[in-house]
Design a protein around this nucleic acid. Structure first.
Length: 301
DNA sequence: CGTTGAACCTGTTTGC
DNA sequence: TGCAAACAGGTTCAAC
């Protein structure tokens, strides 16, 4: 559920609800997805919530401590597959799988809910914050054409794998990788190093247009994504490839196909997105024999 | 370097 | 209808 547009949507909706609020208390249920639950319970109460930012798929809430001389802390939240962060009134019914509740000084609560617990949460100091951010690749909406080309053209991995790699670009997930590749007419199995420069440039603008439009529509709500106030997104209505196996390609009408690429279900148009040459050996098809230059070193004698 | 598959955990959908 | 298998927006790690 939560890729860059969804996390950005949550981030934007969280901001006005949390700005200037103070955390009064913390309640925790299951915490096996939290790096340091003890520190959160100990340090968060009393903190004021400062900026709310997104870094790829991570949300970062700056927590300013009561004592002015103490350095601020960063609460990192990754929503994983099913994580939700919502601001609710205290009286609102608590959803199943709500594991962490931050009580605020305005009779409301910031609640983290996550059935699968694939999400992550950690309260970190400056140094560790830099370590986390340092591992992330470029922000797709801000990357220059030159940087984008370099990050892709150097690599021999499949383009789908590269788009999903958070150390190459931060924030793209399975839906937006497929939607971007469809828009750019690039087959997910093509290798980064095999793409033409104009194809890479085209892919960059496709990624940026898809992500921007998805943010504008509040993200994709496939089964249950909602923003901090509980509102669903609408970009799922604009999916052209993702989840549309067997349906017509909106461009050429031929059926959308599905294959596993980079370990993930990948949807693409077999006609608009041309497959790379040979590549995968199909059943019954022989592997190409590789000619090895005869080395006859011991010939002498 | 790159790829693959499994693992993490629960809920929902699909197939026999 | 009922139960089991497959599948799900993510990341990480071992093995090859």
């Amino acid at each position: 559920m939560p890729e860059l547009p969804e996390v950005e949507t949550v981030c934007r909706s969280l901001r006005p609800l949390l700005a200037g609020r103070r955390i009064l208390r913390v309640e925790m249920g299951k915490t096996d997805f939290v790096d340091n639950p003890g520190e959160i319970a100990e340090l968060a109460p009393g903190c004021a919530i400062g900026s709310v930012q997104r870094h790829g798929k991570f949300l970062e809430l700056m927590l300013e401590r009561a004592e002015a001389n103490q350095s601020p802390l960063s609460l990192f939240v990754h929503l994983g597959m099913t994580g939700r962060l919502r601001v609710c009134d205290k009286e609102d019914e608590v959803a199943a799988h709500t594991h962490i509740v931050f009580g605020l000084n305005d009779a409301r609560e910031l609640r983290y809910t996550d059935p699968r617990r694939f999400g992550r949460m950690a309260l970190v100091r400056r140094a560790e914050r830099e370590t986390i951010l340092g591992k992330l690749g470029a922000e797709p909406l801000e990357i220059t054409k030159a940087d984008f080309c370099e990050r892709i053209a150097k690599r021999r991995a499949r383009i789908k794998a590269l788009l999903l790699d958070q150390s190459v670009l931060r924030g793209i997930g399975n839906i937006y990788a497929d939607e971007s590749l469809w828009r750019a007419r690039i087959h997910p199995m093509r290798l980064g190093a095999h793409l033409r420069r104009d194809e890479i440039a085209h892919l960059r603008s496709a990624v940026q247009k898809i992500l921007s439009e998805a943010i504008r529509l509040g993200g994709s709500s496939i089964s249950d994504f909602v923003d901090a106030a509980g509102a669903p997104g609408e970009f799922q209505l604009r999916h052209r490839a993702y989840g549309r196996e067997g349906k017509g390609c909106p461009r050429c009408g031929s059926a959308i196909k599905r294959a596993i690429v980079a370990g993930r279900s990948s949807f693409y148009c077999g006609k608009c997105q041309r497959a790379p040459r040979q590549k995968t050996r199909r059943k019954g098809q022989r592997q190409r024999k590789i000619k090895i230059a005869p080395k006859r070193l011991n010939r002498a004698a």
